[in-house]
C-alpha cells in the first residue's frame, strides 16, 4: 500500500505547475525516503530532478518500492481541482498499480473529493548526475531571475550568463538589438532579496532562453533560486520546496562551433 498525505495541496499544485510544461510524462519513484522524479524534456536538452522527502508529508506509508508512470498534464488537471488549503492524500496499491487516487479534503471537512488517474508504462532511462564542484554558485531572488529571463528573451533566443566576483551578468542580442542585466553581490547576505556569489573561478556560458523560462515556472515555490555554473557543463537551477525537498533543473549549454 502506498499512501502519502500533505496538509496543504498548494505545494503539490505548484510542483506540478513547475514541471508540466517541460515534461509530458515521468515516473514517480516512491520509496521509504520519499518521492523522486527524474526526467528529460522531449528534446533531451534539459533534465528535471524532483525530490519530496517522506518526513515532509503529514502521513507517509510506502510498504514496497513503487514506480508510477504519470502523465503530468493529467495530474496537473486533477491538482487544479483542489483548493490550496485542501488536505491531499495520494493512494495506490503497491503491487504494480495501474491507477492512483487523489483525495482532497476541505479544511472544514464539508467537502471530500476523490479522483482516480490511470497510470502509464514509461520506459525512460535514469541518468547518472555526477557530483560537481561548481566554479560559481549564485543565490538570488527567484522573481528577479524570472524577470530577467522573460525580459531578455524578447531581445534574443540565447542568454549569456557570465559570473565573476563583481557580480553576475545576463546578456542577449538579436535583430532588435542587445540587452544586459548586471547584478552586483549584495552586502546583507541573509535578506530574501540578497544576491550572493560563491566564486572559485569566473565562468561564461550560453543557454537557450526558452528552457530557462520553463524553469522559472517553479518561482512560486521559493523566494530564492540558486544557479550553479562551471564552463562547458550543464547549468543547475535549484528551487527549494519548503523544508521537504527541492526541484533541480539541469540545462545543457550552447557550445560555440
Amino acid at each position: 500500500m502506498f499512501e502519502a498525505s500533505l496538509a496543504q495541496s498548494a505545494i503539490l499544485k505548484k510542483v506540478l505547475d513547475a514541471i508540466k510544461d517541460l515534461l509530458n510524462e515521468a515516473n514517480f519513484e516512491c520509496t521509504d525516503d520519499g518521492i523522486k522524479v527524474q526526467a528529460m524534456d522531449n528534446s533531451h536538452v534539459s533534465l528535471v530532478s524532483l525530490e519530496l522527502r517522506s518526513d515532509g508529508f503529514e502521513k507517509y506509508r510506502c510498504d514496497r518500492n513503487l514506480s508510477m508512470g504519470v502523465n503530468l498534464a493529467s495530474m496537473a488537471k486533477i491538482m487544479r481541482c483542489s483548493s490550496n488549503s485542501d488536505k491531499v492524500t495520494i493512494k495506490a496499491q503497491d503491487d504494480n498499480p495501474d491507477k492512483v487516487s487523489f483525495i482532497f479534503e476541505s479544511s472544514n471537512q464539508e467537502r471530500i473529493s476523490d479522483y482516480e488517474m490511470k497510470l502509464m508504462d514509461i520506459d525512460a532511462d535514469q541518468l547518472g548526475i555526477p557530483d560537481t564542484e561548481y566554479s560559481c554558485v549564485v543565490k538570488m531572488p527567484s522573481a528577479e531571475f524570472a524577470r530577467i529571463c522573460k525580459d531578455l528573451n524578447q531581445f534574443g533566443e540565447s542568454l549569456v550568463i557570465s559570473c565573476s566576483k563583481e557580480g553576475i551578468k545576463f546578456s542577449t542580442s538579436g535583430d532588435l538589438g542587445s540587452a544586459n542585466v548586471k547584478l552586483a553581490q549584495t552586502t546583507d547576505a541573509d535578506k530574501d532579496d540578497a544576491v550572493t556569489i560563491e566564486m572559485r573561478s569566473p565562468v561564461t556560458l550560453t543557454f537557450a532562453c526558452r528552457y530557462l523560462n520553463h524553469f522559472t515556472k517553479a518561482t512560486p515555490l521559493s523566494s530564492q533560486v540558486q544557479l550553479s555554473m562551471s564552463d562547458e557543463i550543464p547549468l543547475l537551477v535549484e528551487y527549494r520546496i519548503g523544508d521537504m525537498g527541492c526541484i533541480k533543473y539541469y540545462l545543457a549549454p550552447k557550445i560555440d562551433d
Partner: peptide, 14 residues
C-alpha cells in the same frame, strides 16, 4: 554561432 548540446552528452544513462 553556438550549437545546442544535449544533456545526454553530460549525464550518462545508468
Amino acid at each position: 554561432s553556438s550549437k545546442q548540446s544535449s544533456i545526454t552528452s553530460f549525464f550518462k544513462r545508468k
